[in-house]
Structures are given as C-alpha cells and as structure tokens.
C-alpha cells in the first residue's frame, strides 16, 4: 500500500476509534465530535455536507454512530474506508463491554464510577448545547424563512410528540424539495 493511503486509513481508524470511545449517552453525541475532527480540525468535510450525511445516517436502520461512520469513511476513502471507520467505531464498545461484563456487579455499584459518569453527563450536556447553537446559527444564516419555520416545527414535533424521527426527516426532505422548486419557479 502506498504511504499516503495507509496514512489516510490510519487517520480514519484512529479518529473514529477515539470518537466512539467518548460517545457517552447516545448516538447524537457523536455529531459534535465528528464535526470537530473532520470539519474543524482536518477540514476534510464541509459543515453542510456533514449535516446531509448525518440526515442520511439518521434515516437508515441501525445505530446512528455506525451509519455516520460508514458514510464518512465511504466519502473519504471508498468502500475500504467505510470498513475501516466501522471497525474503528465498533471496537471500543466491543472491548469496554467485554471487560465490563466480567466485573459488572462491581462496575454498576462503584461510587467512583458513578461520580465520574455523573460529571461526564454534565459535560456532554454542555457539548450538545454548544453544537445545537451552532446548528441553529447555520439555519438562520441561510436567510430562508421557510428553513427557520421548518426547524421550529421539526423541533416541536421531536420534543413534544413521540413521532419516529425518520418521519420528521422524510417530511422535512419533502418540504425542502417543494420549497426549492417553488423558489426556482418564482425567480424564473
């Protein structure tokens, strides 16, 4: 394998491995981490592209974090890249859980573990609040009133109702298609 390619695979693997090891409390937490690494640090992806990929990951079956890893790996290094990022995402939980299931009773009742986890949860809350503000700013910057309205409606549906998020994504996609078509017709 040539040097640069090996380096690309290694970066993909190590980034997803570390990110997966740090996603405490559900798949969505992976988004600020992926954003920081692939958009801000490596500059391999644009913010908009990243969000579109997240939406695809969300609307596919399975685990959000794995789906996001697949699509990012595929975008940056083809099918081989996707396999590398999946491996990076799956290995940390496989290792941690295999170890923890051996000492489950100790782990679940240890007060130091509980203390660290409680602190980490508060930190995750801050990280999520930060990314939410960034994304809202991004929607505001589009300057499209219908985008902002759609965002408010979707947020209300997601917070206040039990509707499956896949339907929210589909509905917003349809709205986006229709509104863009109307915009083009008006300007033509």
């Amino acid at each position: 394998m040539e040097q640069s390619k090996r380096k690309l695979y290694w970066t993909l693997f190590s980034s997803t491995f570390v990110i997966s090891a740090f996603t405490v409390g559900g798949g969505m937490v992976i988004i600020p981490l992926l954003q920081k690494k692939f958009v801000d640090e490596l500059k391999w992806l644009e913010q908009d592209e990243m969000l579109e990929m997240v939406a695809i990951a969300q609307s596919s079956p399975g685990v959000m974090a794995v789906n996001a890893a697949i699509i990012i790996g595929y975008r940056l290094a083809g099918v081989a890249g996707a396999l590398v990022t999946v491996l990076g995402t799956v290995l940390p939980p496989l290792i941690t859980l295999s170890l923890i299931s051996l000492v489950y009773a100790w782990f679940a009742s240890n007060r130091w573990v509980a203390a660290a986890l409680r602190g980490m949860k508060a930190g995750v809350a801050a990280v999520m609040a930060d990314i939410t503000l960034k994304l809202f700013a991004g929607v505001y910057k589009t300057g499209k009133i219908w985008c902002m309205a759609l965002c408010v409606l979707a947020a209300a549906a997601a917070v206040l109702t039990e509707v499956n998020i896949v339907f929210i994504i589909l509905a917003c996609g349809v709205c986006g298609g229709v509104m863009s078509w109307l915009e083009r017709r008006r300007s033509a």
Partner: peptide, 17 residues
Amino acid sequence: GVLTGLKPAVAALIFAS
C-alpha cells in the same frame, strides 16, 4: 432542494436530543 430541507431537520433533532 431536498437536502436543503434536511438541514433544519438535523438541527431540530439534535436540539431534541
């Protein structure tokens, strides 16, 4: 166009989470 509609959707879902 469809992808433009997905952007507010993702922001909203992350807000919910």
